[in-house]
């Protein structure tokens, strides 16, 4: 565990908490893409199935459980509790165009052709593009609420920090994972336009 990895995890956790609190406090999920949230639930479920097969550390297990619980909690709030506020007219990104290529790619390019490894690979590929329905929704409606922007900034920063962690690990431990690195870079690049707007508006805006 290095500082970049820890900051990345904190940023990820922060993003999820911001989203849950926003929905809970405003009793509304307006502006949030349910499709992205469903994709994230698929990502965590596929990746964290190893919770039952390989124990790493208490930190690792607890974080996995928190991400799973928060993700399903968000889905519950969006699709059941505050269903009336869900903005589905603007949430129209076709997620099969993301899921099917990721399934195919994970079957073709993986570290080992075994069920859990393929699920892990699939989750890495899908995570890299899972935010697209949300970014599409923001561009469609013109602007995101500031709290939604903070959520997106924290969520985008998480993978960017992981890239720094991989650079560090490459030099310090001679360790690298090509699949995670390439997907992580794709994921971070997708946020670049948003990062630019967030930072310039944050500094010069109002």
């Amino acid at each position: 565990m290095n500082v970049f990895r820890l900051l990345g995890d904190i940023s990820h956790l922060l993003a999820i908490i911001i989203l849950l609190l926003k929905i809970w406090k405003t009793r509304s999920c307006a502006g949030i893409s349910g499709r992205s949230q469903v994709l994230f639930a698929v990502v965590y479920t596929a990746r964290y199935l190893d919770l039952f097969t390989s124990y790493i550390s208490a930190y690792n297990s607890i974080m996995k459980l928190v991400f799973l619980a928060a993700s399903y909690g968000t889905i519950y709030l969006m699709f059941i509790k505050f269903k009336a506020s869900y903005d589905h007219n603007h949430d129209t990104f076709r997620i099969e165009f993301l899921i099917l290529p990721c399934v195919l790619l994970s079957l073709l390019i993986n570290h080992e052709f075994s069920p859990l490894e393929i699920l892990w690979t699939f989750s890495i590929y899908l995570e890299s593009v899972a935010i697209l329905p949300q970014l599409f929704m923001v561009s469609k409606t013109g602007e995101a609420e500031s709290i939604t922007s903070h959520y997106l900034f924290a969520l985008g920063s998480y993978r960017a920090l992981y890239i720094l962690n991989w650079i560090y690990r490459y030099y310090a431990e001679s360790h690298y994972d090509v699949i995670a690195i390439v997907a992580g870079i794709v994921q971070t690049v997708l946020y670049c336009d948003f990062f630019y707007l967030y930072i310039t508006k944050g500094i010069y805006g109002q």
């Binding site: 390989s54 790493i56 996995k64 570290h111 080992e112 490894e117 431990e173 360790h175």
Partner: peptide, 10 residues
Amino acid sequence: KRTKSTKDEL
């Protein structure tokens, strides 16, 4: 094949 040190990442 992924090692335990890779599996540590979330």
